[in-house]
């Protein structure tokens, strides 16, 4: 490799690592020495636990809904309805054109008091439909890649000629074969929901990211600690994808980035 090559590699590493090192140092800072005080303060805060587990629950519900929507859809597009592919693909790329801020303004405009059953209006699960939409590209492209790698027709025919119905075929034959893709989509959706600030903030719900922002306005060192925790969550999600066996270079699904 040339000297200028090494220079750019060094620039890349520095840009990536310096903010992390600075944040980590700041989060351990306790007066003139270092301690875990900032982390202890965060973990002792009941609001941390409430918002963290709320975001966790929202992420899980979003993932379940998205998988239920997408596995049958992508299966069907591959098996019977390839003519629908352009439409599905278009709809799944659309969240790139309609940013979260626009999406939530639209959702708040349409689904206001007359439309939403009172039970859900004050409930943070109000956010789930929008989160599922934000996750469209991740889920679709992850599952689409997985389905592309298997022979859907042969598997389906084999399963059905052995007497399995549709549900059984999907659950026992197809799902195990596309599990990698489903998990990749799930991990990306997880990172997305755990970091999503825009929609939660505009709809006035207190999720984990809005809690981070609130701490940031009031306490500097605990905010740094939360930043490290949040970064750790992103790491875990991305390592999860690597662990379930996707090669990093091929993750077209990563394009589009996370919650901003």
């Amino acid at each position: 490799m040339t000297r200028s090559g090494w220079f750019w590699v060094a620039v890349g590493l520095l840009y990536f690592l310096l903010p992390l090192a600075a944040t980590a140092e700041f989060s351990f800072k306790d007066g003139d020495s270092y301690s875990f005080a900032a982390y202890r303060e965060i973990f002792d805060d009941p609001q941390f636990r409430d918002t963290f587990f709320l975001s966790l629950k929202l992420a899980i519900v979003t993932i379940i809904v998205a998988l239920l929507l997408f596995i049958p859809t992508v299966y069907w597009v591959h098996l019977r309805l390839p003519q629908f592919r352009p439409l599905v693909q278009f709809l799944c790329a659309l969240p790139f054109v309609v940013p979260p801020i626009v999406l939530i303004v639209g959702i708040l405009y349409v689904y206001n008091y007359q439309w939403v059953p009172g039970k859900y209006l004050g409930s943070p699960y109000y956010l789930v439909p929008g989160y599922v939409v934000l996750g469209f590209p991740f889920m679709f492209f992850a599952l689409d890649n997985a389905f592309r790698a298997i022979d859907v027709h042969t598997l389906t025919e084999a399963s059905q000629s052995l007497g399995a119905g549709w549900t059984r075929t999907l659950w026992k034959v197809i799902l195990p074969n596309i599990l990698t893709g489903a998990l990749a989509g799930a991990f990306l959706t997880f990172a997305l929901v755990m970091g999503e600030f825009t929609m939660a903030s505009l709809a006035l719900f207190n999720t984990f990211p809005t809690y981070i922002n609130y701490i940031g306005q009031t306490k500097a060192n605990p905010a740094a600690a939360l930043t490290i925790i949040s970064f750790g969550i992103t790491w875990l999600a991305l390592l999860g994808i690597l662990f379930v066996g996707r090669r990093p270079g091929r993750t077209a699904v990563q394009v589009g980035g996370g919650a901003r």
């Binding site: 600075a22 700041f26 990211p209 981070i212 940031g216 930043t227 970064f231 996370g258």
Partner: peptide, 17 residues
């Protein structure tokens, strides 16, 4: 992959640090 998915509020705090 990690850095591209790391954004939002924590990113702002990372740069403040």
């Amino acid at each position: 992959g990690v850095a591209a998915n790391f954004g939002g509020v924590p990113l702002a705090f990372a740069f403040i640090s």
